[in-house]
Amino acid sequence: MGKIVSIHSFRGGTGKSNTTANIASLVAMEGKRVGVVDTDIQSPGIHVLFGLNEESMGHTLNEFLRNECSIGDVALQIGENVGNEPGRKKLKDKYLWLIPSSINLREITDILKNSYDPNILNAGLQTLIKEKELDYLFIDTHPGLNEETLLSITISDILIIILRPDQQDFQGTAVTVDIARALDVPNMVLAVNKALSRYDPDQIREEIEKTYDVKVAGVMPLTEDLVENQSKDIFSLREPDHPWSKAVKEIAETIIEFD
C-alpha cells in the first residue's frame, strides 16, 4: 500500500515546492516508486524543478478535475524525460511521476471560479497509487489552511510541515500542528528551511521539538547556492555534498523509515 505524504506550510515562501521535489527525487533514487502531485492549483511551480514548461507539460491536473482525461494521462514519467541538467540526469530510469497543474492563466482562473470536488481529487490520487503501484505519493499543497489542504492532511499517512525559523511561521505552525492532530494524522514531522547561519541547527531542532512535541526531520540552511540554481535543477542531486542537500537527505531518510 502506497503512502501519501503531504507537504504543507502555513505561509508561502518556505521553499515548499523545492523541498518537495528534492525529497521525492531522493526517495526515487532509493529505487522507490514515487508520484508527485502539484495540488497548488492557484500558483503551481514544482514542474519547473523537473524541467517542464507549458509546451512540454501535456495533460494537467486541471483537465482531470474537469473530467476531461484520466489521472494516468496526466502522470508524466520524469525518469524517461530527464533532460541535460546534471542533477536531474541522475533520475534516468527511476520511477518518478509528476502530476502537474496547469500554468495557463485562463485555466487557473477557471478552476478557481468554478472550484472542484475534492472527492474527485482524492479518488484520482487513489487510482494513481494503484495504477502506478506507487510506494509514495507526495502532495505539494497550497500554503495555508483551506478545504484542499485540510483534505490532503486528512488522507495523509505522513505530513511534513515546512517552516522558517521566524515568529510568524512558529505561530502558524502551532495552529497547523493542532489541526493535524485533530484530524488524526498518523505521522507528522517538521522540516525547517532557510535557517540563518547565526543559529545553531542543533539548538533550532531542540527548541522546535520541545515547543511542538513533533520530530524535526531536518534543518536546511539558508543558502545563496540554492538561489543561484534558479529552480532549474534538483539541487540535492546536483550538489549532494552541500549542507542543504544533506539536510534534505535526512528528511527523505526519515520518510522512508516510517512503516
Binding site: L145, Q171, V175, A182, Y199, E207, T211
Partner: peptide, 20 residues
C-alpha cells in the same frame, strides 16, 4: 551563535484553532 527563542501567542493560537 544566537540562541533561537520561540514565542507563541497562546490566546491567538486557541482562537485560530477554534475558528478552523
Amino acid at each position: 551563535l544566537v540562541q533561537l527563542t520561540i514565542e507563541i501567542d497562546q490566546a491567538k493560537r486557541d482562537e485560530e484553532i477554534d475558528s478552523v
